[in-house]
């Protein structure tokens, strides 16, 4: 089976940024990682490869040159091939653009299975995967927590829904699945594979992105959310905060 995994590089979630004129300003040097659910998608792809002899896993990322780091990690985890589609990600590209660029690159390669995360850790839109499926004409299921080859061909997948309810589907190939986090923890790269990945040349492509022109939605700007509750921030050292919280909870008869 030829499997493609789409991996997004994101800022580290705890990076402190500021907002100026509706734009995010990040500390330098930035700290980056592979988006959490994409890592689970890669793990699912690698597990399928382990189970099905003759399979091949590709990793692709759309982002600036630094996004190569997630591809090297993917190679270190066991991916066979990696490709970087060069494109600036700040301000972020609209999902339809990302899907279109990925589709154009992936179409001639005729993958049997495309895997993405259910949503990116930063933007949380959940749109690139299903849009890509549509553009490539693939069967699609989202929020998938289990994938297994079906004896009769195709795949059996388990989707997870609200409240933990499950939905089981038999899906034909070629297909695109968006993967939700699960108990199947992404593997660590092996040292030998990491060393090899460090030296690997990663093919990069420069898709026609036309960022901004003809977008179906336009980002007007960012703002801090309001607080929906009192949001009393405790002051002082650790012990003083502990004292204060203790007093507040006693006062409210919660302790």
């Amino acid at each position: 089976m030829r499997i493609l995994t789409c991996l997004k590089q994101v800022r580290h979630p705890e990076s402190l940024f500021s907002l100026e004129e509706g734009r995010a300003l990040w500390p330098e040097p930035g700290l980056f990682k592979m988006s959490a659910c994409d890592e689970f998608a890669l793990e699912e792809g690698l597990s399928l490869k382990d189970a099905l002899a003759g399979s091949e896993v590709w990793a692709v990322s759309l982002g600036p040159a630094r996004a190569e780091a997630v591809l090297r990690r993917a190679l270190g985890m066991g991916a066979d091939q990696a490709a970087l589609l060069l494109g600036e990600d700040e301000p972020p590209l609209r999902p339809a653009r990302v899907a279109a660029a990925l589709a154009e690159w992936a179409r001639p390669k005729a993958f049997d299975l495309v895997l993405t995360g259910v949503m990116s850790e930063d933007a949380m839109q959940g749109t690139v995967g299903p849009m890509l499926a549509e553009l490539l004409g693939l069967a699609c299921a989202t929020s998938v927590v289990e994938i297994a080859p079906a004896p009769e061909g195709g795949l059996r997948v388990l989707r997870e829904m609200e409240g933990g309810r499950r939905q089981a589907l038999k899906i034909n190939l070629p297909a695109l699945l968006t993967v939700q986090s699960s108990a199947r923890a992404p593997r660590y790269p092996t040292l030998s594979a990491l060393l090899k990945a460090k030296k690997a040349t990663i093919a990069s492509h420069a898709p026609e992105l036309n960022a901004g022109a003809g977008d179906r939605e336009r980002l007007l700007g960012l703002a801090w959310p309001g607080r929906t509750r009192a949001g009393l921030t405790l002051e002082g050292d650790t012990a003083a905060k502990a004292d204060r919280l203790y007093a507040i909870l006693r006062e409210r008869a919660l302790l």
Partner: peptide
């Protein structure tokens, strides 16, 4: 904006050429 809505709406938006905003 649930696992159901997100299962079909973004693909449909791509097909219709719709402006798509989730959440």
């Amino acid at each position: 904006h649930t696992t159901s809505g997100l299962d079909w709406l973004p693909g449909l938006a791509a097909r219709l050429g719709a402006a798509c905003v989730t959440g």
